[in-house]
């Protein structure tokens, strides 16, 4: 049996898919990093990312299937699900036959599971558009930390680049050591770790206190319903919320 291992980038994944057709070998898995434990009967083959090959696959999806499918694939890739890679391959394999009708075949498992992953990522992005919290740091930088289930930082950045266009900001995915950094002109995605502890300005502490006070006064005591609250706002997001820490 055979696994392909690519470098974790989207281009890497597309290159791997190119190689499947080129070598006429369908692997068991398409992995974004080598398996943790050596497996007895599985051979791992490394795929070297190649921009030209990836570009060809990208183009083919866009023209032969649809831009909507391309978006589903990108979102499914960002889900970082263990099997996302090979699922994307099976989805595409069906897509070459069905063309732009691919996304209508909802009852097919190969389509359904990609839609489900894409939906999860898109849902988390939407949630975090609201749940992200910036803190004003010395040097006039607004800093936000988050630990999302999926790799959504790049999906959040354009929203805040348009909205907070006059602020310097950093959106930092603490669990992946990634960040989107904005300098009031453009944003870039980059590797990122905090060098030292955050220093909050007096002004920042003041507004955090105001927000906490406001948040607490808004609940109507005769309607308290923590189960509903947790359903709408899962507890794993609470850690980075000013009003709940």
């Amino acid at each position: 049996m055979l696994d392909f291992v690519y470098d974790g980038s989207f281009n890497g994944l597309l290159t791997a898919i190119y190689e499947i057709y080129y070598r006429r070998q369908v692997p068991q898995q398409l992995l974004s990093s080598p398996g943790q434990t050596p497996k007895l009967f599985v051979r791992e083959e490394r795929i070297i990312t190649d921009e030209t090959k990836a570009g060809k696959v990208y183009e083919a999806i866009d023209t032969k299937i649809s831009s909507r499918s391309l978006r589903h694939i990108y979102y499914a890739y960002l889900s970082e699900h263990m099997e996302a890679g090979i699922w994307i391959y099976h989805y595409l394999h069906l897509g070459w036959k069905l063309g732009n009708k691919l996304d209508l075949l909802l009852s097919d498992e190969r389509v359904h599971r990609i839609h489900r992953l894409s939906q999860k990522v898109s849902m988390e992005r939407h949630r975090l558009l609201g749940l992200l919290r910036f803190q004003l740091l010395r040097g006039n930088i607004y800093y936000a930390a988050l630990e999302p289930d999926h790799n959504v930082v790049e999906l959040l950045a354009p929203h805040f680049a348009a909205r907070m266009a006059g602020q310097n900001w950093v959106i930092h995915d603490v669990s992946r050591d990634l960040a989107a950094v904005f300098n009031r002109k453009e944003w870039v995605a980059t590797d990122f770790t905090l060098q030292h502890r955050l220093e909050l300005l007096k002004e920042e502490e003041y507004y955090q206190q105001l927000w906490q006070e406001y948040y607490n006064s808004m609940a109507i005591s005769s309607r308290i319903n923590p189960r509903l609250q947790k359903r709408c706002m899962p507890q794993r997001y609470w850690k980075h919320l000013v009003e709940l820490s």
Binding site: L131, Y215, L241
Partner: peptide, 29 residues
């Protein structure tokens, strides 16, 4: 939409920012 030098825009879908202990969302101040 936001204007040059300005702050903010609005998303037509609406965005919830937090939920209070009674499970109602806070979107606006």
């Amino acid at each position: 939409t936001n204007q040059p030098g300005g702050l903010g825009n609005s998303a037509s879908s609406g965005i919830c920012h937090t939920w209070t202990a009674d499970g109602r969302c806070i979107s606006l101040l």
